[in-house]
């Protein structure tokens, strides 16, 4: 059951990501990104991270992507033009991506014993477990991060403000 769901939504996630690159119209790309985000939420749920899954849907698929779609609608962005691309992208891009994938796979496989295993659907991190870690053990980093985000918001307001 878990495996079927994993394959289904993992496949959907990859298909969405590929479609995001292939679509020419920005709004179709944005919608593919929503598919990717939402299927990622299902994968989190399968791994037992229920709060993370809900937050993924609310924050990423909901708030952030609505903003993307809103901006695309507001600017009425047209279809993007295709260029043949630079030679360097073809020569370095594919081998580079393949090399990165290879290195990551090698590191994870060789460190398998140290990293441990997470089985699908074998454990559950409840919201209260998560908040206990977040607000007791990791309180300082958590608060520092929120202040960092506040600074970013203020910065964007200052940059976007019209000159008086």
């Amino acid at each position: 059951m878990h495996l079927v769901l994993f394959i289904l939504f993992g496949g959907l996630c990859v298909a969405g990501a590929v479609n995001l690159l292939l679509q020419r119209h920005p709004i179709n790309s944005a919608l593919s990104l929503i598919v990717v985000m939402t299927s990622l939420a299902v994968l989190y749920l399968l791994l037992g991270a229920e709060f993370l899954a809900a937050a993924q849907v609310i924050v990423y698929s909901g708030a952030i992507m609505v903003l993307f779609v809103f901006v695309i609608m507001l600017l009425n962005a047209g279809e993007e033009e295709r260029t043949t691309g630079s030679k360097a992208a073809y020569l370095v891009g594919f081998p580079g991506a393949a090399a990165l994938l290879g290195v990551l796979a090698f590191v994870f496989l060789s460190q398998k014993s140290a990293l441990g295993n997470a089985r699908l659907g074998s454990f559950l991190v409840t919201t209260s477990d998560l908040s206990r870690v977040l607000f007791r053990d990791l309180l300082l980093p958590f608060e520092v991060t929120s202040i960092l985000i506040l600074v970013a918001i203020l910065g964007s307001v200052v940059l976007a403000r019209k000159e008086q």
Partner: peptide, 18 residues
């Protein structure tokens, strides 16, 4: 009956905007 029932409702609402 879900542990995160309230969040599910909020999530579905935010998808409905599309």
């Amino acid at each position: 009956d879900l542990n995160i029932g309230l969040l599910i409702i909020l999530g579905i609402t935010s998808i409905g905007v599309y």
